[in-house]
């Protein structure tokens, strides 16, 4: 049963991801991106990482894509015309895809990966409570530094966009 669900959600995620890349209309692409994120979230649920699934929906499907849509709206992006592919781009992407394929096949067919499926570790930080405990003990310092990161980003946005008074 779980296997069946995995294949269904994986297929949805992949199909939507392809749709993001291939849709001409940027708004449609953003909408498919939401569906991709939802598919990913359901995969997380099946791995019993409920917290991650909720975050995936709230942050990515919610906030990030809404931001994308705002930018699309502000920039008034028109439907993209069919761009002509340069031969060099074509060759480069084919080579890139081939390397990716070799990598994925090589990694998934190695014995180490097969050995894992039987002995999955417990998802230690997967519940909200565990996550909170870890965040305020083990990861206390990175969390505080992240606070400064956000502060710097905020100051930066103001500095780079505020009108400077000429006096």
């Amino acid at each position: 049963m779980t296997d069946l669900f995995f294949y269904i959600f994986a297929a949805i995620t992949l199909a939507c991801a392809f749709a993001v890349v291939f849709s001409r209309n940027p708004v449609n692409a953003a909408m498919f991106l939401i569906l991709t994120f939802l598919g990913m979230a359901s995969l997380f649920v099946m791995l019993e990482a409920y917290f991650l699934a909720v975050i995936q929906v709230l942050v990515y499907a919610g906030a990030v894509v809404v931001l994308f849509l705002f930018i699309i709206m502000l920039l008034d992006v028109k439907e993209e015309s069919k761009a002509k592919l340069k031969p060099l781009t074509l060759v480069a992407s084919v080579i890139g895809f081939a390397i990716l394929l070799v990598g994925v096949v090589g990694i998934t067919s190695s014995d180490n990966i097969k050995a894992t499926t039987e002995t999955l570790p417990e998802a230690a930080g997967a519940t909200l409570k565990n996550f909170g405990y870890e965040l305020f003990t083990t990861y206390q310092l990175p969390m505080q530094v992240t606070g400064f990161l956000l502060l710097v980003a905020m100051i930066g946005v103001i500095v780079l966009s505020k009108r400077v008074k000429t006096d």
């Binding site: 530094v145 990161l149 980003a153 100051i155 930066g156 780079l160």
Partner: peptide, 11 residues
């Protein structure tokens, strides 16, 4: 730490 420094450098 790297991201904090890098975001600062962007600005």
């Amino acid at each position: 730490a790297l991201e904090t420094a890098t975001v600062g450098f962007y600005i």
